[in-house]
Amino acid sequence: MIEARAITKRYKDGTLALDGVNFTLNKKTTSIIGRNGAGKTTLLRILSTQLLPTSGTASINGLDVVKAAQDVRNIIVSIPQESKPINYLSPLDNVVLYLSARRMRMSEAKEAAEKAIKTVGLWKVREKISDELSGGMKRKIFVAMAIASKSDVVFLDEPTTGLDPLSRIEVWSAIKAIKGQVILTTHYMEEAQALSDDVLMMDKGKILSQGKVGDLLKPFKGKVRVESTKKKSHSYKVGNTYISYIGKNEAEASVMVGDIIKPITLDDLFIKRGVELEY
């Protein structure tokens, strides 16, 4: 279980990245969503003892991330945003090196690494240098680290950014193989939907909402999303597109040439809240 109480982070240059954040995370997998600069990475780095908060407290399974940082480090794995494997080492060696940082015995580390490399589907390329792997394979190395660590809590910052749809699905199943509690950030709403039932939505350093995907989408019940190039009443302007949310039947009756009707996803929550905040 992860608890944050009034976490604030102001960087040295004055940027207020987190503004009094409160939450409790106790589901198997939680997705943190939010626009670029919302504070997701800052939050994850504070929770995983890489960055100090300016004020406030946070704990992981009852251990304070500042006062008991060393104990926290025993039970967490944190995969940074855009982290890359050491390019001249093989997937297996990358995982073994990481496990040795976790003070695992070499023989035990090798065994755990091999098993995890198998689980994430990298067995065939386990001896190749990472430079020769595809982007998806590289990301899977980090998921393998998380699996092999057998730790209680795993933080993954944008684990699938930049991957093609198939690789993404492969990484998802690797993430599902992680035994501990998983906290991940993502810009892909279908990813949040596929992997987690607890979603934390952030904007400008604040938590906008938290809950199950279904609960968060309740305001959209019975509605569809209509994308149009022309302005409609109660529409949100995103770029040159006007988006409105109307009842399914009404949408079908009033559809105009060029309009696109789509089912509701977490994207819509995002569009609605994001756009509201923007204007």
Binding site: E82, K84, R103
Partner: peptide
């Protein structure tokens, strides 16, 4: 490079190393 590009240092910080 480990600190800025690969984020390897960040990865290691969150361990007891």
């Amino acid at each position: 490079q480990f600190r800025l590009d690969d984020r390897h240092q960040d990865l290691i910080i969150a361990t007891k190393t």
